[in-house]
């Protein structure tokens, strides 16, 4: 069946000459009427946009831009990254939810995509059902870092110390309702302790206060902490993933320290609008897998992220688990956005 495309738009060609553009402008209407999509079950001609719900320059944006080139090559479409910041990711997410389910509009989501809906009682959409899942792209375990002046070396000692000095220990996070915050509250709940949350705006300033010894604990990416661990200016008590990390195989996980349910993993994943045909999802997923070459995986690993494209069903499964975990903790400690 031949259906006319609803969004007829001419994107400027990357290297078109001035004349070409002037003529495009002059004959725009002609080309508009002749542009048609052939079939529903493959991505229509034209660029595929990866929507990032953050302003340019953040780690999610940069990862999307890292994948942009290889993904475009594997998919055979030009790929653009569009930043749609605002509403703590609601604006960008809503944009994708309302887009045509033809594979041309994707969302590069993070933990926040799911957290928003759970934390905020924001029920305009549910990322589990109102979006199709293309695949998780990158994951990262966090580390529980402590300033040496606190005098603890393990999770057990931290718990003991916190119980002996209630209200005295604090933890810094990159922001209210961030994964770092949730991870800290999950530790509070799991170990039945009460360490005070001190939110910052971004991991950088929080880390500075941790290094300076104003903050006691921070659960954060271990990226860039290497020097501080080596010199003893910071201590790594545990990592937060379900398994130990490749970078610190000798450091136990929080789960190993006696809280088997505990897991806090940061991830970035591709979503598409609801009811995107399965063939298109598969096409996108296989292009992503193709794009994640060993070389790229290795390069990305340097930034602390493990690049590994999961299958769509693995992503759905993973999100369901995450949602349950978050819901439980939020019910228990009552964080709100």
């Amino acid at each position: 069946m031949v259906i006319p495309m609803k969004n007829n738009h001419s994107y400027p060609k990357g290297n078109g000459s001035l004349w070409k553009v002037i003529s495009t402008m002059a004959f725009g209407f002609a080309s508009v009427t002749s542009t048609i999509a052939l079939a529903q079950d493959s991505i229509p001609d034209g660029p595929v946009s990866i929507n990032v719900a953050y302003a340019p320059g953040g780690s999610t944006d940069l990862m999307a831009r890292t994948l942009q080139g290889p993904f475009s090559e594997a998919l055979g479409h030009s790929v653009v990254v569009e930043n749609r910041p605002g509403g703590s990711t609601i604006i960008g997410t809503t944009h994708v939810i309302n887009a045509e389910p033809n594979g041309q509009t994707l969302l590069y989501g993070t933990n926040a995509t799911l957290l928003n809906q759970i934390l905020r009682d924001y029920d305009d959409y549910d990322p589990l059902t109102d979006l199709s899942h293309v695949g998780i792209a990158a994951t990262q375990s966090l580390g529980v870092l402590a300033h040496p002046s606190l005098g603890v070396d393990t999770i057990e000692e931290l718990v003991e110390h916190a119980r002996a000095n209630p209200g005295d220990v604090n933890f810094a996070s990159s922001g209210n309702a961030s994964l770092q915050h949730i991870a800290g509250e999950m530790l509070n709940a799991a170990a039945d302790i009460d360490i005070t949350h001190i939110p910052y705006t971004g991991a950088g300033p929080a880390m500075t206060d941790l290094v300076a010894g104003r903050a006691d604990i921070m659960i954060t990416s271990l990226l860039g902490a290497g020097d501080y661990l080596e010199s003893g200016q910071l201590k790594l008590l545990a990592t937060t993933g379900p398994e130990r990390t490749q970078a610190y195989p000798d450091v136990p996980t929080v789960a190993e320290a006696g809280y088997p349910e505990y897991a806090a993993v940061s991830y970035q994943a591709f979503y598409a609008p609801r009811d995107t045909p399965e063939s298109i999802i598969d096409q996108l997923n296989s292009a992503l897998s193709q794009a994640a070459t060993d070389e790229l995986v290795e390069q990305v690993l340097e930034t602390g992220l493990e690049l590994h494209i999961t299958s769509p069903s693995e992503m759905t499964e993973f999100l369901r688990n995450e949602a349950e975990r978050y819901e439980a903790i939020i019910e228990e400690v009552g964080i709100s956005l």
Binding site: H9, P12, G14, L18, G28, V80
Partner: peptide
């Protein structure tokens, strides 16, 4: 201005803005 905008924002900074649509 159209030519200027096209050259600077679309070509120069590669902004995802549509020239026109119907």
């Amino acid at each position: 201005l159209c030519v200027l905008a096209w050259a600077i924002f679309l070509q120069g900074f590669n902004m995802p803005i549509r020239l026109w649509r119907w």
